[in-house]
Structures are given as structure tokens and as C-alpha cells.
């Protein structure tokens, strides 16, 4: 059972400003049914250029509803420039804190606000907000820009924290390496030791050494990332520089397992073992959904 503050429960049970503003000046939609939470925010400006009314509709858990409700309270009466200063931390602290795994709910509120203001300023239409940057997490559609932002604004230093704050890396796990890079990029080298200290890549390997190192890399570097998301990997064979593996568990059904294979498995093996390696999925009759 989640340990929600009284404030969260109050805003969940008695949400303020539910609905849609009539003839809104700005509308922002973020999230989706598939992601497990979604928020539509609409606002109307008064003659003084301040937000006169703001309403929301939210699909999601108690903390998502409460974050949305607080967001509308926070931005009312503010100018758009003032509203832009509202961060996810403001939402979370107004609520007396959120469980760490639920911080993404406060981030969703802030993103909806940005989308709505962008919509008003005519940069793009809020219904299909064009994301800035390149998609990093294909499972939840999170871009590098969004990850940099949550890392910077919340002082995050681990992949797990990033997942808690914006969901990136919470699906197949294929992007964990890229998220770690982004953390280092934002926070500097100081956090690097907390992520992973890669072993020195040996210059020349005997076959036995190569096999052992491949196995070790899979066990220590690749498998934990996949297992964190209910997936797994099995080393089937090594033929020269060709490493044959099979995905198990969630990875076997993951729509983006192709990316995982190339961007995680092959990248890690090249990083830790040898640049000459190529990775292939096992061609087997055991792959899932093969017949009735």
C-alpha cells in the first residue's frame, strides 16, 4: 500500500478544477492509455493576461489525479511566464511529497503545462505535441531532452531515478545505457562511478577468454538491465566473432527487442569484449507465438 500524504488523498478524493475550460486559450495533452497515465490540461487567460481558469482531466492513479489538481491550483492567477516557472518539484512539495516511484506523476503535470502554454503561443498544436529531441525510450516515448530536463531539475544520478521521474527505461530496458550517458552528460563525471565502471577491454583474447568474458558481460552488464523489466537473455553459442543469444521473458515479446539486441547487447559486448563482435538472435522454433 502506498504511503500517500493527507494532501495527496485530499486532492485525489476531492479534486479541484475537473473538466475542460470552454473556449480555452491553451490545451496540453500528455501521456496515453498505454502508458498508464494521461493528462489533458486546458486554461483560459483573463483580460490582465493572467490565467483566469484552468481545468484538467486525468487518467491514472491517485498521485496522478492529485498532481493534476494541484497543478491547476498553482497556475491560477499567474501570468504564462510565471506559470512556466512551476516545476515538478513545486507540485510534489505542495502535496507534501510523493513516493519516489510516483514522481513521474508530478513531471507529467509540468509537461502538460508546458504543452498547453506552447499550444497557446502557437508553436504547435497541443493535441499532438511535437516532442523536442530524439526518442530515447521507445517503450514510453521519452526523448533525450525530457530526460536531461528531469535529471537537471531534480538532481538525479541513477537510471532507476530517471525511470521513477519520467518512466524512461521502465519498459524493455534497452535504453538504460543511453540514459546513463545522459546522466553523465548533465551531471558531469562525478556521478559516473555510481553508474558503472567498465573493466578494461583486453587487447587480445584466446577463444576461452572470449567466451568467459562474453558470459561475464552478459551476466554482469546486460542481464540485470533486462531482468529489471521482467526480461532475460540466454547465451546460445559463440561462433568466431558471432555471438548468438536468445531473449527470454518480457524481452521475447518486446516490440523493440530488435533495438535492445543492437543497442544494448551488441553495444555492451563490443564495449567490454571486442569491437569485432556481432550479435544475432537465435533462429529457433521455440520463439514465442510460433504456432497454434
Amino acid at each position: 500500500m502506498w504511503d500517500y500524504t493527507d494532501k495527496v488523498m485530499d486532492h485525489f478524493l476531492n479534486p479541484r478544477n475537473v473538466g475542460s475550460v470552454e473556449n480555452p486559450d491553451g490545451v496540453g495533452e500528455v501521456g496515453s492509455l498505454a502508458c498508464g497515465d494521461a493528462l489533458t490540461l486546458s486554461f483560459k487567460l483573463g483580460p490582465d493576461g493572467r490565467i483566469a481558469d484552468a481545468k484538467f482531466k486525468t487518467f491514472g492513479c491517485a498521485s496522478a489525479v492529485a498532481s493534476s489538481s494541484v497543478l491547476t491550483e498553482l497556475i491560477k492567477g499567474k501570468t504564462l511566464d510565471e506559470a512556466m516557472q512551476v516545476t515538478n518539484q513545486d507540485i510534489a512539495s505542495y502535496l507534501g511529497g510523493l513516493p519516489e516511484q510516483k514522481m513521474h506523476c508530478s513531471v507529467m503535470g509540468q509537461e502538460a503545462l508546458e504543452a498547453a502554454i506552447a499550444n497557446y503561443r502557437g508553436k504547435h498544436d497541443g493535441a499532438a505535441a511535437v516532442k523536442k529531441g530524439n526518442i530515447v525510450c521507445t517503450c514510453f516515448g521519452v526523448t533525450d531532452e525530457e530526460i536531461r530536463k528531469v535529471v537537471r531539475e531534480n538532481g538525479l544520478s541513477t537510471v532507476e531515478q530517471v525511470t521513477n521521474y519520467c518512466k524512461a527505461g521502465g519498459g524493455c530496458g534497452g535504453c538504460h545505457g543511453r540514459i546513463a550517458e545522459l546522466i553523465v552528460e548533465v551531471q558531469g563525471e562525478a556521478v559516473k562511478t555510481q553508474i558503472a565502471s567498465p573493466p578494461k577491454k583486453p587487447a587480445k583474447l584466446t577463444n576461452i577468454q572470449k567466451i568467459q568474458l562474453v558470459q561475464q558481460t552478459i551476466n554482469e552488464q546486460i542481464r540485470p538491465a533486462l531482468r529489471a523489466d521482467g526480461g532475460d537473455i540466454e547465451l546460445i553459442d559463440i561462433d568466431g566473432n558471432k555471438v548468438i543469444v536468445a531473449f527470454r521473458g518480457m524481452c521475447a515479446q518486446c516490440k523493440v527487442s530488435g533495438f535492445t539486441m543492437k543497442d544494448v547487447v551488441q553495444a555492451r559486448l563490443r564495449e567490454y569484449v571486442s569491437d569485432d563482435l556481432t550479435v544475432e538472435a537465435e533462429k529457433n522454433p521455440e520463439s514465442s507465438e510460433h504456432k497454434s
Binding site: L33, A34, G36, D37, G60, C61, F140, D229, G230
Partner: peptide, 25 residues
């Protein structure tokens, strides 16, 4: 639902059954 467990994806049983995420949540 994903949110009850702290995970981001819903139950492994419903996913294995192919229940759409919209219904699993």
C-alpha cells in the same frame, strides 16, 4: 495495474494473455 506495484507495466499475467494495456491498467 502497474501503479499498485510500483512497476510501470501492468501484471505479467495479463500481458502474457495479450490483454490490451488499456484494459490491463
Amino acid at each position: 495495474s502497474a501503479c499498485t506495484s510500483g512497476a510501470l507495466e501492468p501484471s505479467h499475467v495479463l500481458r502474457a494473455m495479450g490483454v490490451p494495456f488499456t484494459a490491463a491498467h
